[in-house]
Simulated assay, not measured.
Amino acid sequence: MAIASLSDLAETARCPLLVIKVGSALLVGKQGVRREWLAGLVDEIAAARGRGQQVIVVSSGAIALGAATLRLEKGGRGSLADAQAAAAVGQIALSGLWTELLGNHGLTAAQMLLTLEDLEDRRRYLNVTATLTRLLDAGAVPVINENDSVATNEIRFGDNDRLAARVAQAAQASAVLLLSDIDGLYDRHPTEEGAQMVPLVEGISPEINAMASAESNSGMGSGGMVSKLQAAEIAELAGICLVIGNGQHDRPVQRIIGQGIGTLFLPRRKAGARKAWLGGRLRLKGSLVVDAGAAAALQRGSSLLAKGVIEVEGVFERGDPVAIVDEKGRVLAHGLSEYDATECAAITGLHSSDQADVLGYAPRSSVVHRDQMALK
């Protein structure tokens, strides 16, 4: 049974595994930890467990907590060094908080700190999947955060919205609930006159992306609506529903699910596990620009041939992930290249019969094979 409405998130048969993402501004206020609010949320998590659902928590807040303890300016986000130091201190307090509150309900918290590389590298991704599966089977509640004490700007998610979607993908969750500072997706900036909330989205489209704003009202968090829609795209490819709801209220999950206040993103399709992982990648080593004929062929399920490539961007090796884009810069697919960047550039636009003379060996059947490609 598939999820069709917000109320279905409370149905064990439709939603056996729910990922709940909690933002920094919800967990930490001007006076410190919003303990009473968090206790109410943990009550809701315990209720979900009581009706047979499994729950994974993706929790921000380490940097904010650590910055307060170390008295760092700008909430610990003044520099990368400040953020890393704040995270190192704050993560201890954050994990202790979740352990205590979940323990009050007889639930065991399990901390996992992840970097972008843990979910972008296929072998490490599968290891995360195995660990999450074992923890859930053992009855624990995984509490996950980005490992900000070691992550650099080049190897970090930058927001927990996309991390939550990737974790849901790895754990094969039914749905992701992003608790935010807004009721849902609005058709324009919510401060504009006539702005209306969109209750249901069936597949991310250019029109939906145009509604997004990168702003975050609190100034404490790092993700705005743009990152939430990117998270919805990642979830969609894996066949996972995603919900944006307002976490500022007491017992926010009940308000979202019980009263139906939020935006529900329904996936249009479900890719295989490997293609879902590939399509959800955030770091790519380069891009291949293709002509209109190749773009149309990709949509029909064809592999990408060198003849359809008109430009090669970036530095990458054989087997590296690349974006396939059209002449307008629109991303059509992610895929694993069969050639390195230099070889790709050398055979751009050539028929297979002409490639051997350039390469010095028999060409491979394609530049990106359809089995190693995920359409966007």
Rank of each mutant, 00 (worst) to 15 (best):
G139F: 07
M197R: 15
L101V: 08
L132R: 10
S180L: 06
D148P: 04
T191M: 01
Q172L: 11
L185C: 07
R166P: 00
T133W: 01
S180T: 15
E207W: 01
Q196H: 12
D148T: 06
L185N: 02
L102F: 13
S205I: 05
P142G: 09
P199D: 02
R166E: 00
P199L: 03
P190G: 02
G194S: 11
L126P: 06
L97M: 14
T129A: 07
E120T: 11
Q111E: 03
G96Q: 12
V141A: 06
A168L: 08
N104R: 15
N160H: 07
H105V: 01
S174N: 13
G96Y: 11
N104Q: 15
P206C: 06
R123F: 11
A170N: 04
R122S: 10
L163P: 01
A138N: 07
T131N: 12
A88C: 13
Q111L: 05
L113D: 03
A173H: 11
Y186G: 01
Q111F: 13
P206N: 08
L102V: 12
D137R: 13
F157K: 04
L113K: 12
Y186F: 13
E202F: 05
G106H: 14
A140K: 06
A140N: 06
A210P: 09
W98N: 08
E100I: 06
E146W: 03
R156H: 05
D187A: 07
L119A: 12
A138P: 04
G90Y: 10
H189F: 01
L135G: 05
E193I: 00
Y186S: 03
A140F: 03
L116R: 15
A109K: 13
L114R: 05
E120M: 12
L119G: 12
Y186V: 01
A212W: 04
L107N: 14
E146G: 03
E154I: 09
E207F: 05
T131H: 08
R188D: 00
E192G: 00
G139N: 07
L97I: 11
G90R: 08
T131A: 13
R156K: 15
D148L: 01
A195Q: 07
E100Y: 11
D187N: 15
A171V: 11
P190E: 00
G203P: 07
V150W: 01
A165Q: 02
V141S: 07
T133L: 05
Q91I: 09
H105W: 15
A140E: 01
I182L: 11
E146S: 02
D118R: 08
E193T: 01
Q169Y: 02
D181E: 09
D118E: 08
D159M: 06
I92S: 15
D187F: 04
N147I: 02
E207D: 13
